[in-house]
Design a protein around this nucleic acid. Structure first.
Length: 265
DNA sequence: CCAAACGCGGTTTTCATCGC
DNA sequence: GCGATGAAAACCGCGTTTGG
C-alpha cells in the first residue's frame, strides 16, 4: 500500500507538468512509456478485484478481455500527466489487448477534454480517433470516459446526426456512446437529444443500456423534471425495469411507487 | 415455485460545501 | 487557501419480496 502511494508520488513529481520542459516531455509521451508506467503500478490484488468487478465470465460482456491490475485512481492520475500525448500514440494504446491500457487511452482524452482551454483541433483529433476506433471501446467504463465530456463537447456546436446513427447500432457500446454523449448537452441545459435518443433505446435488450439511459434521464430530470414526467407517462408501463428504476431514483417514495405500479395498472 | 424485481450496501472517484 | 466532510455517480452483488 505504502509502496503504491510512494510510486504514485514519484510519477507526479516528474517534470511533466512544467511548461518549460515541453521538448523533453514530448519524447516521453509515448505509448511505450505509458505502458511502462502502468506496469510499475501493477498489483495482483488489484488484478483479482478488477476481474471480479468487470464481468469476465463466459457470456458476460467482459469475457475474453485481459487485465493487468492497476487501480483506477492511479490510472487516472497517469492519464492526466500524459494529456499531451500525440494522437498516434494514443491510438497505439487503444490497440492494446489490455483493458487498463485502452482505458488509459480514453482517459487521456477525457482528462484533456475536461480542460476548457483544450484546442478545437485537439478535441477534433480525440473525437475522430474515438469514433474511428470505436471497435476498441468494448466496455462500459471506456464509453463513460469517452462520452461524459469529450464526445459531447466536440459535438455541442455541430450536427448531432451521428448520435442517432449510433443509437441504432447493433453494437451495444455504440448505443451506449449515443446516450452518454448527451451528458454534456444536459450540463449545458439542452435535453432534447437525451429524450429523443432515450426514445430510441427505451426497449433495448441490454441491461447496460438500461442503466446508461436511466442514468441520463435522471440527470436530465434535475434540469427539466416535466420532460421526464411526460416521458414516463408515455413509457413507464412498458419500459425495462432497470431503466425505469434508474430514472426515478431521486423521486420521493410516493412518486416512485406511482411509476413502478404503472406496469400492473 | 422460481425468476424477476426491489432496495440496500460496498467498490471507487469526483465535486461541492463548510469551517478554520 | 485548504483540508475535511458528505453526497452522488458509474458499477456489482446479495438478501428479501413479489408476482406470474
Amino acid at each position: 500500500m505504502a509502496k503504491l502511494i510512494k510510486a504514485k508520488k514519484r510519477v507526479i513529481e516528474r517534470p511533466v507538468k512544467t511548461k518549460a520542459g515541453n521538448s523533453i516531455l514530448k519524447k516521453e509521451l509515448t505509448a511505450k512509456n505509458f505502458i511502462a508506467q502502468l506496469k510499475n503500478h501493477q498489483s495482483d490484488t488489484e488484478l483479482k478485484k478488477i476481474q471480479r468487478y468487470f464481468k469476465t465470465g463466459v457470456g458476460d460482456y467482459g469475457h475474453g478481455d485481459k487485465f493487468m491490475g492497476v487501480k483506477t485512481g492511479t490510472l487516472f492520475a497517469l492519464a492526466k500527466e500524459f494529456g499531451e500525448m500525440p494522437i498516434g500514440e494514443i491510438e497505439k494504446l487503444l490497440e492494446s489487448p489490455i483493458h487498463e491500457v485502452r482505458a488509459g487511452a480514453v482517459s487521456i482524452m477525457d482528462k484533456a477534454s475536461r480542460n476548457k482551454k483544450i484546442s478545437k483541433e485537439r478535441l477534433k483529433d480525440f473525437f475522430d480517433l474515438y469514433m474511428r476506433r470505436h471497435d476498441r471501446v468494448n466496455n462500459w467504463d471506456l464509453c463513460d470516459l469517452g462520452c461524459l465530456y469529450m464526445t459531447g463537447s466536440y459535438l455541442y456546436d455541430k450536427p448531432h446526426d451521428i448520435l442517432y446513427k449510433l443509437a441504432r447500432s447493433k453494437n451495444i457500446w455504440e448505443r451506449r456512446t449515443a446516450i452518454l454523449s448527451t451528458c454534456y448537452f444536459i450540463r449545458k441545459g439542452e435535453m432534447t437529444d437525451t429524450f429523443k435518443i432515450a426514445e430510441i433505446l427505451v426497449n433495448d435488450k441490454e441491461d447496460l443500456i438500461h442503466k446508461a439511459t436511466g442514468w441520463m434521464l435522471r440527470f436530465a430530470c434535475a434540469k427539466d423534471r416535466k420532460r421526464l414526467i411526460t416521458f414516463l407517462d408515455k413509457h413507464a408501463a412498458t419500459m425495462p425495469r432497470t431503466l425505469l428504476r434508474y430514472s426515478i431514483e431521486h423521486f420521493n417514495s410516493k412518486e416512485r411507487e406511482h411509476y413502478l405500479k404503472m406496469k400492473t395498472a
